[in-house]
């Protein structure tokens, strides 16, 4: 889901940065690290750790391609989607500076997909799961797939809008970018949901409540 450094035209990079920045500020305000309880601090650490660990893995996928899991589900369901933009920004800055993955000019666009669009989809599925009274593990798999899809579809849209196909326009290039991301992401999302369920099951029972609802 990382749009590489410099791979969005200046105006697009600026626009996505302007859209993502208020969300990161709003998100950061909710952390309140000094005043927060020990319990919430540990949940935050766990969510950030999960996000860091998962986004560092590069799973092989169909036809010789590979892709990263998103790692956004744990934080979104344990603490709500408000904590996600700032956590996503943290991991994306780390990757831009140390790994040459993503970049500072594309940080806004990448925060928008990983920290806003993905968690929104996860929260939506979490709510749906609560309403339908599905088992936790089914809900987690659905939430992971939905969050992963929303994240990668957003990246595809961002690139398609920036680079319309000369013949068929934005719809044409969207098809091409979706073909890159969507196909590779399905097996990766399923694999990722195993990690999510594993960590969820290792939480004490009373903590397994869906904040997203």
């Amino acid at each position: 889901m990382h749009i590489a450094e410099g791979y969005l035209p200046v105006t697009h990079a600026a626009a996505w940065t302007l859209l993502a920045a208020p969300a990161v500020v709003w998100s950061h305000r909710s952390l309140d690290l000094a005043g927060v309880s020990r319990h919430r601090r540990l949940l935050l650490a766990a969510s950030a750790g999960f996000l860091f660990a998962l986004t560092a893995l590069k799973f092989p996928s169909v036809a010789g391609s590979s892709s990263h899991p998103t790692g956004i589900v744990l934080g979104t369901i344990l603490l709500g989607m408000r904590v996600m933009p700032v956590l996503a920004a943290l991991v994306l800055v780390f990757q831009a500076l140390l790994l040459a993955h993503g970049g500072l000019t594309t940080l806004g666009a990448n925060v928008f997909s990983l920290g806003i669009a993905g968690p929104l989809a996860v929260a939506f599925v979490g709510r749906l799961q609560g309403g339908l009274r599905l088992p936790d593990s089914v809900g987690l798999v659905l939430a992971t797939v939905a969050g992963s899809f929303a994240t990668y579809a957003t990246t595809a849209v961002q690139l398609a809008v920036a680079f319309p196909d000369p013949a068929s326009g934005v719809t044409g290039s969207l098809g091409r970018f979706m073909a890159v991301f969507a196909v590779a992401q399905v097996p990766v999302a399923l694999l990722e949901s195993l990690f999510t369920v594993m960590v969820w099951k290792s939480l004490p029972l009373e903590m397994r409540t869906l904040e997203a609802q």
Binding site: A4, Y7, K58, P60, S66, H101, T155, S173
Partner: peptide, 19 residues
Amino acid sequence: VFAGTGTDEQAIDTVAALR
């Protein structure tokens, strides 16, 4: 080390193909 070509790199190739 062993995973295939990342989707991020494939996206760069797609950009190159489009423009």
